[in-house]
Design a protein around this nucleic acid. Structure first.
Length: 302
DNA sequence: ACAATTTGACCACT
DNA sequence: AGTGGTCAAATTGT
């Protein structure tokens, strides 16, 4: 609930900034932001009403405990018989407990700082889009965090409702504040450095202008995003752009990037991460034209 | 070879 | 019986 309200506030700020911006902003973008605001308001009002009745996320109360060894199955498939005797874990019922569940409305897809492994996909009635089921890749460490991603409609940019179930108990800590890129139809990008991109995250897919930036970044391996461990974070339509911004804070460089250790990326942006981490109020926006050349930028700033 | 994703089947729940 | 959540073999990617 708190997150929803924060998200609403952030979205309002973005909306006001876009409206008051000297840079021409596409009507579609303003419309999209207005829609997001509307969705958030709906979600908040629904949540408020369900909270008072003890419900969580519109889901029915769920039972979770079964006999731990009740799942003895035989499956016939293409003439073969596979006998599976899989002890059922307590709490691993088909219907999940949704306590600790929270929902976010996000652009599709986005990097929430954790690594997820897809374990299923299901067509959902009347939704038109399949729902994806993800679990934390560190499930072997006992991390039970799950998320479900459901695209909400045909709108562009594509938006998805992401439901997080359970908290991360693994060591794959939040990778820290992210550098995200937004762009308007004119080809200008906004790099948004935020100290805590928690929820909800309001992000938009790339317009072709980003591919220009990405291409130019790839010209220099030190500034590249190509070798990142978590390649999923860098699908062409996603936001994170990474570059060596250690010029901003070389003295405080401390790696905050356990998940990228060994990659040049981690070295490259650790300064940015540490500076942002060390200052909870760190917040910086940059306007970047699509002819932006990171090497020139770095030369001029050093 | 290993890791991640896809996909069809199973099962709990309504 | 219909639906949604999960499992795990098969497939695909690196």
């Amino acid at each position: 609930m708190e997150d929803l309200v924060r998200g609403q506030e952030f979205t309002k700020q973005v909306h006001m900034q876009l409206q008051g911006s000297e840079i021409p902003v596409g009507k579609e973008i303003l419309d999209s932001v207005a829609k997001i605001l509307e969705c958030l308001e709906n979600a908040i009002s629904k949540f408020s009403s369900s909270e008072s009745t003890g419900e969580v996320c519109q889901s029915p109360a769920l039972t979770t405990v079964d006999s731990p060894f009740s799942d003895c199955r035989k499956i016939e498939e293409t003439g073969k018989i596979r006998a599976m005797v899989t002890p059922k874990k307590i709490g691993s019922n088909k219907r999940r407990r949704t306590a600790n569940a929270r929902e976010e409305l996000t652009a599709t897809p986005f990097d929430d700082g954790h690594s997820w492994r897809k374990y299923g996909q299901k067509d959902i009635l009347n939704s038109g889009f399949p729902r994806g089921y993800f679990r934390c890749t560190h499930r072997d460490q006992g991390c039970e965090a799950l998320k479900q991603v459901q695209r909400t409609g045909e709108e562009e940019p594509a938006m998805s409702r992401v439901t997080y179930i359970g908290e991360h108990t693994c060591k794959d800590q939040f990778r820290g504040p992210r550098l995200s890129i937004d762009s308007n139809p004119r080809g200008t990008c906004v790099l948004n450095f935020q100290s805590n991109c928690y929820s909800p995250k309001l992000e938009f897919p790339f317009s072709p202008s980003f591919s220009t930036v990405e291409h130019e970044f790839k010209g220099d391996t030190k500034n590249t995003i190509a070798n990142h461990n978590n390649k999923d974070s860098f699908k062409s339509y996603e936001f994170a752009a990474w570059c060596d911004l250690s010029a901003f804070n070389s003295s405080q460089t401390t790696s905050m990037m356990p998940s990228t250790s060994g990659s040049e990326l981690g070295d490259g942006i650790s300064g940015l991460y540490s500076s942002a981490e060390s200052n909870p109020n760190f917040h910086m926006d940059m306007i970047v034209d699509d002819m932006f050349d990171p090497s020139e930028f770095l030369n001029s700033s050093s």
